[in-house]
């Protein structure tokens, strides 16, 4: 059966053989993961903004007025010192407190996680990560109990993965960075060095559960592993 036609014929009928329906547990597991997975935001700007001509003229005029007004304000004699450097500091009473910008609120405020969420947290895996754990296996999230600067996953059979350096950010967010895989305290699983993820964390009122919600992560497997509700591990 080595001439091309018979080979192709045989291959075609052979490739037909096999399952044609997806196992429902696999589809259900995917839908469960999707429940806790955020979508990526679509930040692309459309090529053309469709507006009627009068609206376009009005918008252009408004932009022009804002530009001229802004320039006049910046270069007015009383405000010149604000260009290129800080001006004289006004009195505290007259200074309104500006709300923090979104960027500022996402800044790293400290390394490590607060003491209340350090320690061991457990969950039942609802999927598998090749070479690390299988579905329905008990997995443990360990947040370094000493300084909270690292977290990693441990499995019941002694495996470890997704070791990440942790930086606390304001507004209940943390930033995770995959360290060098040469670090001997835990493997990085399928994440590669330098991959960054941002997560929101919240703890239940009684302190027995910790919920991590992914904001974004360059390492997809870390999302599927970490983004869930964890139960505080019983102390031995």
């Amino acid at each position: 059966m080595t001439d091309d036609r018979s080979l192709e014929r045989a291959a075609r009928s052979w490739i037909e053989v096999g399952p044609t329906r997806a196992p429902s547990h696999a589809v259900d597991a995917a839908l469960l993961r999707i429940e806790s997975t955020p979508q990526e935001r679509d930040l692309r700007i459309p090529w053309r903004i469709v507006m009627p001509l009068p609206a376009r003229v009005a918008a252009a005029a408004l932009v022009g007025v804002l530009l001229v007004g802004g320039a006049a304000y910046l270069f007015a004699p009383g405000n010149r010192s604000s260009v290129g450097g800080p001006g004289p500091s006004p009195s505290a009473a007259s200074t309104p407190t500006a709300p923090p910008s979104p960027e500022a609120s996402r800044a790293i405020v400290s390394d490590g996680l607060p003491p209340e969420i350090r320690g061991n947290w457990q969950a039942l895996a609802d999927h598998s990560i090749a070479g690390l754990y299988d579905a329905n296996e008990s997995i443990q999230l360990t947040v370094d109990p000493n300084d909270g600067r690292h977290l990693w996953i441990e499995t019941a059979h002694g495996g470890a993965g997704f070791r990440s350096a942790v930086h606390a950010m304001s507004a209940g967010e943390i930033k995770l960075v995959t360290p060098s895989p040469s670090n001997d305290q835990g493997v990085t699983a399928s994440c590669t060095e330098g991959q960054v993820g941002t997560y929101r964390w919240s703890r239940s009122a009684d302190g027995t559960s910790l919920t991590l919600t992914a904001v974004d992560d360059q390492c997809a497997d870390r999302i599927t592993t970490l983004a869930r509700t964890w139960r505080l591990a019983p102390t031995s």
Binding site: A29, T37, Q39, D42, H127, A130
Partner: peptide
């Protein structure tokens, strides 16, 4: 391989959900 195929299916569906806005 059925197990690998299940993993690929799950990962593809989750990734599709994340990226569908694009």
């Amino acid at each position: 391989d059925p197990a690998l195929a299940e993993d690929a299916l799950q990962n593809a569906l989750v990734l599709a959900w994340r990226r569908i806005p694009h």
